[in-house]
Design a protein around this nucleic acid. Structure first.
Lengths: 188, 188
DNA sequence: CAGCCCTATGCAACTCGTTGCAAGGTGGTG
DNA sequence: CACCACCTTGCAACGAGTTGCATAGGGCTG
């Protein structure tokens, strides 16, 4: 029951059609929420039936017409209520973490390779986020309102990637140390 | 398709029945994976049908008999293969993050209260994890094998909670600053 | 113009996960 | 004994989310 509300946030920022929303999700709200276009279409249809959004068919030259959705008054009220509702403690879920925990029941070298690959992915994403930040928020001290919130959430995305990199480095270092133990007291 | 493998990891550490597994999930692997007992029962049944685990009915005094599951040879092979398989980039999903982004479309004071409550939850969980670490891993430098991995994953849980607290503090501080702006150049 | 890709919307089928409930047994309390 | 609490397993129904495919128009290329 939360994709609806994420869409209300996105449509409050800017009315849009299904595919546009899907694309925006990938590049901005998508730090912390992901959805396929199928799901977005279905939820938009339900939201329209519930009167949370209004639709306007917009013809385009050289392209099929699109249905542009905008938040209605009742949708805005729903969003307002939702924003004031406490969130239950959120569960984090990571397949990689399960693998790291289970490493000793498989080929450890192969698993370390998997971890290194994941670390590279997070590194790449971190760089991407930092570029976004430099491009879109060159003067963070001056922001207010929606822009301030958007920047703070992007900061969260950056912090999250930093968390991953630090943790995975921790893991890799510990297993390097275990593989090549440094003898402190006696040596060769 | 990943709960199966998480269960294989848990059962490799220690054979167990459905409810025991559900409870262990809550307190250890549960840092990074959560599952209800219903789901665990269903998946265990499927895994047994697939020959990944073996079952032994164990009678108990004063309690209903339980079905203790253990990893079979073919289950161990499946786990081994899975551990060596690369993980696709994982999507993080947070309702709270969406709310923080949408704050300006609702009552900001109410939302800041929601954020403070979430911060308190993460703080409490962090303290809990730190106690677990002090109790179960007093000498982290000496660990090897499965214990080392378990400790490193707990370290990940700790780092994750630290990420949340730092981020939420960031958010709260920015909105405090926006509410009570400090005039640097001119004052009163 | 045939073939392919892009945009835009959408259906159908499936898996995953949650919620509510129940059966059947034991133990403890008033 | 009646009642409640708890343990263990499980069913049924629902909602969320993914994957594959379909349709229908337009543009580009050989």
């Amino acid at each position: 029951m939360a994709l609806e509300h994420a869409l209300l946030v996105a449509l409050s920022e800017q009315p849009a059609a299904g595919l546009e929303l899907a694309r925006r999700f990938e590049k901005s709200i998508g730090f912390f929420w992901h959805a396929t276009h199928q799901q977005i279409y279905r939820v938009l249809a339900r939201m329209e039936a519930d009167g949370w959004v209004t639709v306007e068919e917009v013809a385009q030259t050289g392209r099929p017409a699109k249905k542009v959705y905008a938040v209605s008054a009742s949708g805005a009220a729903v969003l307002r209520d939702w924003l004031a509702t406490p969130v239950p403690m959120e569960a984090f879920r990571s397949e990689l973490a399960v693998k790291m925990r289970g490493a000793s029941y498989g080929d450890r070298a192969a698993l370390l390779e998997v971890v290194r690959a994941a670390r590279a992915d997070h590194e790449a994403r971190l760089q991407h986020y930092r570029q976004l930040e430099a491009r879109d928020y060159p003067q963070p001290g001056q922001l207010t309102g929606a822009e301030l919130d958007q920047h703070l959430v992007l900061r969260g995305g950056i912090r999250l990637e930093e968390f991953w990199i630090a943790w995975l480095d921790d893991y890799l270092a510990a297993h390097d140390a275990a593989a090549h133990p440094v003898k402190k007291e006696q040596s060769a």
